[in-house]
Design a protein around this nucleic acid. Structure first.
Length: 565
RNA sequence: GGGCCUGUAGCUCAGUUGGUUAGAGCAGAGCGCUCAUAACGCUUUGGUCGCAGGUUCGAGUCCUGCCGGGCCUGCCA
């Protein structure tokens, strides 16, 4: 039994995430967590909302409530939706927690001790009307390059030229529209990442099993131009982790957010009524974490923070904190010919998805089409076709045909009699081989390959039934049919166990219908297929997966074609 | 402009360190079965592997150029 620490990139507090966000980190992380638990490993699966920063402050102001209240509300909303998708976090924390405050300040102090923090005087735009410093992108004006009048202070959307706020002609605050701006001098702490380049480079080069996507992004930042630059880790804001001895300043989200992986584990310990040792054994290699395997899941946009900045925080502390062992990163999911967009409300959002279909439908499609090697695309046609075929026809109908046949011929009880012969032997051989492959793909976090293998395992059941043809044998040799059905009912339970990481609700429903609580991994297929003995009662399950009709698909296609309100 | 990724059957994708007739699922066609959510099984039609060169006994797989798609180019996280 291994100990596996799993973290999903933290969703930002500012609103409900779309399916592209979901498939980029939380969902695959959940798949892996469920699988690892299913194999009997000890798992700590952590996620949290990322609550600091300007967008949260502005959203709260817009809603007319204090930012702390806003975050508390939205955290609840996100937690409920995560629950709806059956994301099995051991703890879904908040980066604004006391634990994270303490840890963030702790890391900053250690980094300072090790001469990795530098105070730098910087110039930033201040809006007198808004009474706050403005991040570059919250300042707009006319682009000096192309004349576009709504160019942002970091980059012009029209001509894509990178800009600085001071470049803009007639700049104004996007918050208030005020042009009463001035450049003020302000002091900030910078993380001296550049001093750690060699150490980072060596570390990343040692990770030969990481994907090209992950390592190429990391190396690009290490080697690009002047190399890895030092980075400001504080901001002039009220909402955040206060910087000691620097009133009015907080740590930048980018610094405190990854630390919340640790903070959330500490939150978990507290909610469980456990002491510090309980979470430290996951994070401190001097306190029991030396045998932990730590895996992170994230979208590609988050890779730089997890391959460079956060490791600098960890390594630079000179304390024995656990570094990540494997990073699983994802490309983007597109929506029907374009990108999902939170700001433009394009695509299907998590709450909307759950309002039209159970989570298993989404889980299956998203995971079996996860953007692992390149960006992938969601279309309603593809979604309907995949879900109907894989879930309703191949898996759901298998359970249906077996249980209904049994009920009609033998009653709702596992029938006795008959012997297993060549067909059964062949099936067991096939399953043994495929389940081994399935496990290997899951171990390697090859998600689409795992899904394909699982589907092939479902198909094997239908192939077997066709060959064994119990409906035909029943007429001349009822005992032979009984043996076939006995095995097939066991197969339903086996499918429930194997499928649970992908489609937990359906798996539970099938397991319940078979009236069996045994969910142990089928290391021995033959034994697993004898779990339900003759005489064991079961019930015919409700339709496990109803099909998506053309009419429904067209309605949703229409419903989600425009903007979200 | 620079960097990285990507372009394989109608669709979604596999193709390991270059090696025999390029694979899967879906869709299409034919056959079979009738237990089942008109479901299932079997067989089968589709590809000059973006284009053009090059290296090699041999390239989807390496090199060069071009074309198309995507991402990044650092204070939104």
């Amino acid at each position: 039994m291994a100990r596996i620490l799993i973290t999903s990139a933290l969703p930002y507090i500012n609103g409900i995430k779309h399916l592209g966000n979901l498939v980029g980190s939380q969902l695959p992380a959940d798949l892996y967590a469920r699988y690892c638990r299913g194999r009997g490993h000890e798992v700590m699966f952590i996620c949290a909302t990322d609550e600091h920063g300007t967008p949260a402050e502005l959203a709260a102001a817009k809603a007319g409530i204090p930012v702390a209240d806003y975050c508390a509300q939205l955290h609840k909303v996100q937690a409920d939706i995560a629950d709806g998708f059956r994301l099995s976090f051991d703890h879904f924390g908040r980066s604004s927690s006391p634990q994270n405050h303490e840890l963030t300040q702790h890391f900053a102090a250690r980094l300072a001790d090790n001469n990795l923090i530098e105070e730098v005087s910087d110039k930033q735009v201040y809006s007198k009307t808004d009474k706050r410093f403005l991040p570059d992108r919250y300042i707009e004006g006319t682009c000096p390059n192309c004349g576009y009048e709504q160019a942002r202070g970091d980059q012009c959307d029209e001509c894509t030229k990178p800009l600085s706020p001071v470049d803009l002609i007639e700049p104004y605050s996007t918050i208030s529209g005020s042009k009463d701006l001035e450049v003020r001098e302000t002091k900030h702490l910078f993380l001296r990442q550049s001093r750690m380049v060699d150490q980072l480079d060596e570390w990343i080069c040692s990770k030969s099993d990481w994907s090209i996507l992950t390592t190429s992004i990391a190396k690009k930042w290490l080697d690009d131009g002047d190399g890895l630059r030092d980075r400001g880790i504080t901001r002039d804001l009220d909402w955040g982790v206060p910087v000691p001895e620097m009133p009015g300043k907080v740590f930048y989200v980018w610094f405190d957010a990854p630390i919340e992986y640790i903070g959330a584990t500490a939150e978990w310990a507290q909610t469980q009524g456990l002491d510090d040792a309980a979470w430290q054994r996951w994070w401190r290699t001097d306190k029991g974490a030396d045998d932990v395997r730590y895996v992170q899941f994230m979208g590609k946009d988050n890779v730089p923070f997890h391959t460079l900045s956060f490791p600098v925080t960890i390594m630079g502390s000179n304390e024995p904190w656990k570094l990540v062992d494997y990073i699983k990163s994802f490309n983007y999911l597109n929506y029907d010919g374009g990108q999902f967009s939170t700001s433009r409300g394009r695509g299907v959002f998590m709450d909307q998805a759950l309002s039209i279909l159970p989570s298993d439908y989404w889980r299956w499609w998203l995971l079996s089409h996860a953007p692992e090697n390149s960006d992938s695309e969601f279309t309603w046609e593809n979604f309907q076709a995949s879900v109907n075929k894989d879930l309703a026809d191949v898996l759901g109908n298998f359970a249906s045909r077996v249980t209904k046949f049994c009920r009609a011929k033998f009653g709702e009880v596992v029938p006795e009699g008959g012997e297993y012969g060549a067909d059964e032997k062949a099936l067991i051989e096939t399953l043994t081989k495929r389940i081994k492959a399935y496990g290997e793909h899951m171990d390697a976090m090859e998600i689409r390959k795992s899904a394909a293998e699982l589907r092939a395992i479902w198909v094997a059941g239908n192939e077997y039934l066709q060959t064994a043809a119990p409906w035909s044998k029943f007429k001349t040799d009822p005992a032979a049919a009984a043996a076939i059905i006995r095995l097939s009912l066991n197969l339903i339970r086996l499918y429930a166990v194997l499928s649970a990481p992908f489609i937990p609700d359906a798996a539970k429903a099938l397991q319940d219908a078979m009236k069996c609580a045994d969910t142990s991994w089928p290391d021995d297929v033959q034994a697993a297929l004898n779990t339900l003995p003759a005489g064991h009662e079961f019930t015919v399950p409700e339709v496990t997966f109803a099909k998506i009709s053309d009419a429904q698909r067209e309605e949703w296609q229409q419903q989600f074609s425009g903007k979200r309100d």
